[in-house]
């Protein structure tokens, strides 16, 4: 069936089989391979995308369900050709090692900071609890997100 979905601000019209998983649609149909497939069993969060602004696991949705909706993937985080505050903080604080979980982590962090601009460490860890990182022990990820919050606070009023 034909669906129309807006991804990172760009509208796409595509024909797709109902059983096609959203993550596969994003990667193979749209060529946006920043969204990763980790466990494929709703456990790890590597495939996290923002669905109408809300983080969800795209391995556990069908592409047809995105018809008429807006998605943000990691490719859509950049602003005006520059890293978003969350991306810049992950780079600055080395909030990654292998990088496989990083797109999901950054999307969850972006959604968190849009609803809670000044989260405590506990709130950050709680928000990340559906995303698994097997390298870092999470410490630098949490630091990166809190630092991004501080940066966004400083530049409040400027689009972040």
């Amino acid at each position: 069936m034909e669906i129309e979905v807006t991804v990172n601000g760009v509208a796409y019209r595509r024909d797709t089989e109902p059983r096609r998983l959203l993550v596969d649609f994003i990667r193979t149909e749209l060529g946006l391979t920043g969204t990763h497939i980790g466990c494929d069993t709703t456990s790890c969060g590597a495939c996290t995308v923002l669905f109408d602004g809300v983080p969800v696991k795209s391995c556990t949705m069908f592409a047809v369900q995105a018809d008429g909706h807006e998605l943000t993937t990691v490719e859509g985080l950049r602003r005006n050709g520059e890293l978003s505050p969350v991306q810049a903080a992950f780079k600055e604080h080395h909030g990654l090692q292998c990088g496989f979980c990083t797109p999901g982590m950054m999307l969850v962090a972006t959604a968190l900071l849009s609803s809670n601009p000044d989260p405590t460490e506990e709130e950050v860890r709680w928000a990340l609890s559906g995303n698994i990182c097997r390298c870092t022990g999470y410490t630098n990820i949490v630091e990166a997100i809190r630092s991004a919050a501080a940066t966004m606070h400083e530049t409040a009023g400027v689009e972040s």
Partner: peptide, 9 residues
């Protein structure tokens, strides 16, 4: 219930 991402859906 589950984790934050699953709870969103």
């Amino acid at each position: 219930v589950a984790d934050p991402l699953v709870r969103n859906r």
